[in-house]
Design a protein around this nucleic acid. Structure first.
Lengths: 351, 351
DNA sequence: GTGAAAGCGCTAACAT
DNA sequence: ATGTTAGCGCTTTCAC
């Protein structure tokens, strides 16, 4: 019988410690520690040699326990699958790396419960948090504050709480969408909004409705479908909208994931865009201009949002930033492509 | 002058420890520790009360130092922006959560240097790693092994190293693509491959070439464009392919990001798909069937890859899995949509 | 400049 | 069932 030795059996590994290094170099652990810190040390060469020979790496865990610091930033986002957040991460990461921080990502799946757990135990594992809170009535950030973790809000806010935040002009985005639709002559329009208790959900909705109102049009209740920022939600919402006795001739979909779902629904229904239905989305998509027709969207500087959030956070950590919470609000712009046209029914009814 | 008190000043927070709880409950720290562990404790009520009153949470850092365990799994992936990895993460996360593990994500940006740094300092912060190594000649995993971290390879392998791995049938995928193109009558085909020193890069390329060879066709050197699995790489590669004196009538793009770039190039060049050029991609895209034309791709079970990788890893950790490395290879399948047709030049030249 | 000793917050022996 | 002690690996006074 051949005894198979597991290639994955690490059970009796023992860690090389600072004392091992000290012993080999013929100095005390304290001296090695000093060397590590960059302080002047006589036996520098021997210490360096010992470290190399033993392949020693200081334990970050022990360091954390001692210093209370981890040199890592946590990014807590609601959906890793959403390209917007992927872009944000890219931006944030590059800034962090330059400052010598590691960034580590966590997914809440739009669940307050998961967010809560996560933030709670991240509190000691990170030096700071960039967080896109699930809801505007989210109690998590305040609890995190009481645990001593600096937080910067990303894209979503919790009004009344004094945290730094990097947001975008959601109202402006909603207005842009509405105006664009209005310009094309639409009168009966719909919206697939995000959760109205989230910053971008509410903001985009309100901007949209206001612009409509100012132009003398009302946004009918049945034409407002509140969904959850996810693909499936957008899909269902579009189905409901198109199932209306009198369905809208144009719809604004308030985020990228829902737009994908909504487009799927429209295609399954065999509805022609833009002739039978105009669509404007929020957030550009990689493939937006390769779609049939190319998708008109409200766009914003995604990576930049990550960059700014990380700068804010790092500023708090090194005290170069202090005082009252900073709020940064970035501009959005409309990218007109091919998914909007004049409403066909209007053509029939008017003049 | 009003002195503004910073809302973000946490400088003199002091942590509530197990001793504080013990003192308040009138027991020893050890007893509190036992209570935390779930062991029977007489003064259970008083301890519970004290914990609640003091809002105490045990320090995971101190626990880690003591136990060498972190109850977290690291996922190290080359590109957060790639929807394939996003899907994998979803799958892996759900399994981990059920087992009481937190999963935390790290991005290497296809850089061996970053991967190396990352794995090196993750070694002590995680109980195990799911890793998509940048290259097949990547020395990082072996170093990680020597640091005692169990690893499962995801999607990419390092041949000769004895690690668990969850892969897909890349060769099969390449063959499927080639056969599909062949069936449509293409004779001069091209490939935009990933790095040939990566598992999926090499595998898809070889499967593609072999299937072509078996059918009696040769894959010309100039029709092989090796890129980097990224959008921009795919874009440039397609530009080169279309700039050839005699350009291919069909091309296989070996991953999703490069496909997006390639499509962009094709559209800018004003080349008609599928009439002037047939395309098959690798990895399905959310919007694949909403493109004009809908994109034909080789698809695979993405979330499932994450699920299996996490199961393997967790199995190693709790010793329910032992012995030789496991290699799981998942099947792929072709999703024919609208981006392939008969070559127009062939129509002219043949019969 | 360098060593000895204490301690970060916790858990695991070892007693009792 | 519970307290005492020691120690995880490191940094940091405090002497010298």
């Amino acid at each position: 019988v051949v005894v198979s030795i597991s290639a994955n059996d690490f059970s009796d590994e023992l860690r090389t410690t600072i004392s091992d290094v000290a012993r080999r170099a013929g100095v005390s652990p304290a001296t090695v520690s000093r060397y590590l810190k960059g302080a002047p040390v006589k036996a520098e060469d021997r210490v360096r040699e010992a470290i190399a020979a033993l392949d020693f790496r200081p334990s970050v865990v022990a360091r954390s326990l001692q210093s209370g610091t981890t040199k890592t930033i946590g990014l807590v986002i609601p959906d890793v699958t959403n390209p917007f957040f992927a872009a944000v991460v890219k931006g944030a990461e590059s800034v962090a790396r330059q400052a010598g921080y590691t960034t580590s990502l966590f997914n809440t799946d739009e669940s307050i419960a998961r967010e809560s757990e996560l933030v709670e135990d991240l509190a000691e594992r990170v030096d700071g948090l960039i967080l896109a809170p699930v809801s505007e009535v989210d109690p998590v950030p305040e609890r995190a504050r009481s645990r001593g973790v600096p937080i910067v809000f990303l894209d979503r806010d919790v009004p009344g709480s004094a945290f730094d935040a990097v947001l975008v002009d959601n109202e402006g985005g909603g207005r842009l969408a509405a105006q664009h639709l209005l310009e094309h002559g639409h009168e009966r329009v719909g919206i697939i909004s995000g959760p109205l208790d989230s910053t971008p959900g509410r903001g985009r909705f309100e901007g949209f409705r206001e612009a409509l109102g100012e132009a003398g049009y009302e946004l009918l209740a049945e034409c407002v479908q509140e969904a959850d920022f996810r693909r499936e939600g957008g899909y269902q919402a579009m189905l409901r909208l198109m199932g209306l006795a009198v369905s809208p001739t144009a719809v604004f979909v308030a985020n990228n994931m829902m737009t994908i779902g909504a487009l799927q629904a429209v295609r399954e229904l065999g509805i022609d865009v833009p002739d039978a239905l105009s669509i404007v989305g929020f957030d550009d998509l990689d493939l937006a201009d390769l779609l049939a027709p190319p998708l008109t969207v409200v766009d914003r500087p995604m990576e930049q949002q990550g960059v700014l959030a990380m700068r804010l956070l790092l500023g708090r950590l090194d005290d170069s930033l202090s005082g009252d919470p900073r709020r940064i609000v970035l501009d959005v712009r409309l990218l007109p492509r091919g998914s909007c046209a004049r409403p066909s029914s209007t053509l029939l009814l008017s003049s």
